[in-house]
Amino acid sequence: MNSLRTAIISVTAHGAQLGQALRAHLTSADAVVSSQVVCFEKEGRTSGASATTFTSMKPHMETWFTTYDRLLFIMATGIVVRMIAPYIKHKSEDPAVVVMDEQGQFAISLLSGHLGGANEWTAEIAEVVGATPVITTATDVNGIPAPDVLARKLQCKVEDFTTLKEVNAALVAGETVPYYIDDTLYFLHHYEAVAKAQGIELIRFNPHTVTGKALLETGGAEAPPVVITDLILPTGPRTLVLRPPTMVLGIGCRRDTAKELILTAISESLANVNRSPKSVASAASVIVKADEVGLLAAVKELQWPIHFFTQEEMALFIEQSQLEESKFVKETIGVGNVCETTALLQAKSQTLLQTKTVYPRTTVAIAQVQSK
C-alpha cells in the first residue's frame, strides 16, 4: 500500500504537542502503515516544532478533506462535526477522520471507519498515547470481520453499497456469510493470506465451469454471499462483489479526440475481455498526451488515475520486449507503440489481456497487473 497522506490538526498548545508525538510515531518504522504527516497548528498555540500554522480552520477545511487520506483532529468532537459536514460525500470517497481530546484520554473513530481505515487507525493511535479507543460500527463492536475492511485490505472496490449494507446486517444478525474467490485471479494466494489474517476463509470457485457459475447464481447459502472477482459474471441479487485492481489500460489517441470516443473504446475493450471497470488499477499513455483534454476527461469520469511515460522509457521497453511499432506513430511522437507499451510498463507485466485494438481515433490495450 502506498504511503498515506495524513494531517494532524490541533487548536491548543497541549494538543499541538500531542500531535507532534503522534507525528513522530506515524512516520517511524513502528507505524502500522507508512505515512506522510503534516501537523497544522493554530497560531499562538503551537508546539514549537515543525508545523504549518493557521488562524482559522474553516478556510482550510475543504482542502484538508479532499487532499488527505487521514485526518486527526485534536479538539472537541462537536467542532469537527460542524466543520466537516459540508464536505462529506460517500464512504467510498471520504477520508478517515479521527477525533482526540487534547489530554489524549479518548480517540474516536468518526468517519470512514472501514473503507477509510479509521477504526484501525483509532486503535493504533490510542495505543500510542494510552487513550481509550471509541469505535461504534456494529461489526467491530461485535467482533465480526467486515467485508468492507477486507475490501480495503485487498484494495478492492465495492460493486454495490446497498448490498454491502445488507451483508453487514446479516453478519451482525449472526448469519454465516460465505466468501468466494475467483481462482483464476493472479494474486489468489496473496488474497487468501490477507483474508485469513482477518479471520475470513475464502472458498475458491472457477468462473469458467458449470459448477462455479451455478454457485454464483444461487449464492450457495441463505445468507448474502461475498464474491471477489474482476470478471463480469451472473450473480444472485443479494451478492456483494468486490473488485480487485487487476488491470491497466494503455490508451493511445489522436490529437483532440472527443471524450465520448475514448469512453466507447474503453467500454468495448473491457467488454471484450469480460472485465469490470472497477478492477482497472490505472490508465496509462505517452507523455505527449498529458494535456489531451478528451483523455483526461474520460479517466476523470471513470475515476481512474493515469500515468504518462516518456518516449525514452517506452523506447527501451519496446526494444527489450520486441513490440511491434507503427511507422506513422513513431514518426509523429518518437515511439511507434503507445497502448501496449504503456499498459505493460504501468502493470509491471509481460501479459496482455487485450493486444492493441483499434477504435475510431483511439487504440486500447489491457495488461494484467503482475506486481504489487
Rank of each mutant, 00 (worst) to 15 (best):
F40S: 03
E41T: 02
E41S: 12
E41V: 08
K42W: 10
K42Y: 07
E43R: 15
E43H: 12
E43C: 10
G44R: 09
G44T: 15
G44S: 11
R45G: 00
R45Q: 13
R45T: 05
R45I: 00
T46G: 13
T46P: 08
T46L: 09
T46H: 05
S47V: 07
S47L: 05
S47T: 14
G48R: 10
A49P: 04
A49E: 14
S50D: 14
S50C: 12
A51Q: 14
A51F: 13
T52Q: 14
T52C: 10
T52W: 07
T52E: 15
T53W: 08
T53H: 12
T53P: 08
T53N: 04
F54W: 06
F54H: 06
F54C: 03
T55F: 04
T55Q: 13
T55G: 15
T55N: 08
T55Y: 11
S56Q: 14
S56R: 15
S56F: 07
M57I: 12
M57C: 15
M57A: 14
K58A: 15
P59S: 07
H60C: 02
M61P: 05
E62P: 00
T63A: 12
T63S: 12
T63P: 00
T63D: 07
W64L: 07
W64E: 01
W64G: 00
W64K: 00
F65Y: 15
F65Q: 02
F65K: 04
T66I: 01
T66F: 00
T66P: 00
T67P: 04
T67G: 01
T67F: 02
Y68D: 04
Y68G: 12
Y68H: 12
D69T: 04
R70L: 09
R70T: 01
R70V: 04
L71V: 01
L71Y: 02
L71S: 04
L72F: 05
L72I: 13
L72T: 03
L72G: 00
L72S: 04
L72V: 14
L72H: 08
F73T: 03
F73C: 02
I74Q: 07
I74R: 09
M75D: 03
M75S: 13
M75P: 06
A76G: 12
A76R: 08
A76H: 11
T77E: 04
T77C: 13
T77P: 01
G78I: 10
I79N: 06
V80S: 05
V81Q: 02
V81T: 09
V81S: 03
R82Q: 05
M83V: 00
A85E: 11
A85I: 09
P86N: 06
P86Q: 11
Y87R: 13
Y87E: 03
I88R: 02
I88W: 00
K89C: 01
K89R: 11
H90C: 12
H90R: 11
K91R: 08
S92F: 14
S92E: 15
S92R: 15
